[in-house]
Simulated assay, not measured.
Amino acid sequence: MPLLTDRFGRVHDYIRISVTDRCNLRCVYCMPEEGLKFLPHEKVLSQDEIVDFMKIMVQFGIRKVRLTGGEPLLRTDIVEIVRGIASIPEIEDIAVTTNAMYLAKKAADLKAAGLTRINVSLDSLHEDRFRSITRGGRLQKVLDGIKRAEEVGLFPIKLNVVLIKGQNDDEIMDFLRFTQNKDINVRFIEYMPIGHAGNSWKQKYMSLETIFERIREEGLEFESVESIRGNGPSENYRLSGAQGTFGLIHPVSAHFCANCNRLRLTADGYIKACLYWDEEMNIRPLIQKPDELIELVQKAIDNKPENHEMALKLQDEVTSHQPTWRRMSQIGG
């Protein structure tokens, strides 16, 4: 079977599947304060549809899967979804990105079902600030979830920290110190203009070069390390003497499109070849028609632009494509 390759020679072996657009939090960079109108349940891909879709995709080289949301652990059948995908012989890696509100409760069952790794969204280590950024989250539940994930052997554990100017940028060293005695990868992510009209997002954006500046101000040393196991585009480093590592994901200031190997499937069954652009194609009616489905997936890949041009957006320059209408919670990141 041919591999899924685009016009620029990028081979796609990794897919991020949003299993729900629902979330129990309202993070400031992901969803408006008033929330969003969620999809009715019948519009969301079923467990069988997701697993059947993956049985087709592995025939064309997809080997790695990440389940996202919304919040994927809100799915009452999330363990069964993991088990179904993990049972496909060709699958090499299956991970989940979660806000960890239910992770302590579900970590053991997810591990037993075949989950390989976990990413946890954690944007502050201060209870009040965490509650403000997430609009209602409880920090201790996240920390309990991380601890439980460690206990059941979900490694590596990665913490996703969206750096927000004026809200959590004074916690950079706190997060770096978090890696001193824990085998955890803290990943700083630039604030992105996903789903934002106008330029208001720029007020919260800051370059990740700030991380290096803070480290030098503290008189600390760090070194580059080999890529941490997983599928992410982060550049990884370690503070001298630290057990864990930290990574930088800077899609805006230094985009990583040249090596992009990712596809995305929304909760309502649309394939997206690029996170940022609005082009998407409905594959749901074709899940039982493998030839037509893969033809449509390849069409999406053929239309994939060379890069997402967020850096142009930062400079108020004209971009070549229309940005997506979906908010981050509706795509899955």
Rank of each mutant, 00 (worst) to 15 (best):
D174W: 05
R117D: 08
M101K: 12
I94K: 10
L139A: 09
L110T: 05
D144S: 14
A104R: 15
G166W: 01
E150Q: 13
K147T: 12
G114R: 05
L143C: 07
A107W: 04
G153Q: 10
K158Y: 09
L154A: 09
D170F: 13
R131D: 08
E171T: 13
G136C: 04
G114Y: 06
N168S: 09
N168A: 08
E127P: 03
E92P: 03
E151L: 10
E90P: 03
L122K: 01
G137L: 05
L125D: 02
L159T: 11
E150P: 00
S121Q: 00
L103S: 09
L143F: 13
I88V: 15
L154T: 11
E150Y: 08
N99E: 13
I85A: 04
I172L: 13
I88D: 04
N160S: 14
I164P: 00
L122P: 01
L176D: 01
L115N: 05
I118C: 03
V142C: 09
A149Q: 07
Y102H: 14
I157K: 08
G166L: 01
D93G: 06
L115V: 04
A104L: 06
I118V: 15
E127W: 00
S87W: 06
I164Q: 04
F130V: 05
L139Y: 11
G145M: 12
D109W: 06
G145W: 07
A104H: 15
I85F: 01
I85K: 11
T97H: 06
K111V: 04
K147H: 14
L125G: 05
E127K: 11
L163Q: 08
N119R: 03
D170C: 05
M101P: 00
D109G: 09
G145N: 11
A112H: 12
F155V: 04
R129F: 04
K158I: 14
G136W: 01
K158D: 06
I133T: 09
G84P: 04
I133H: 01
A100P: 03
R129W: 07
E150K: 12
V162L: 00
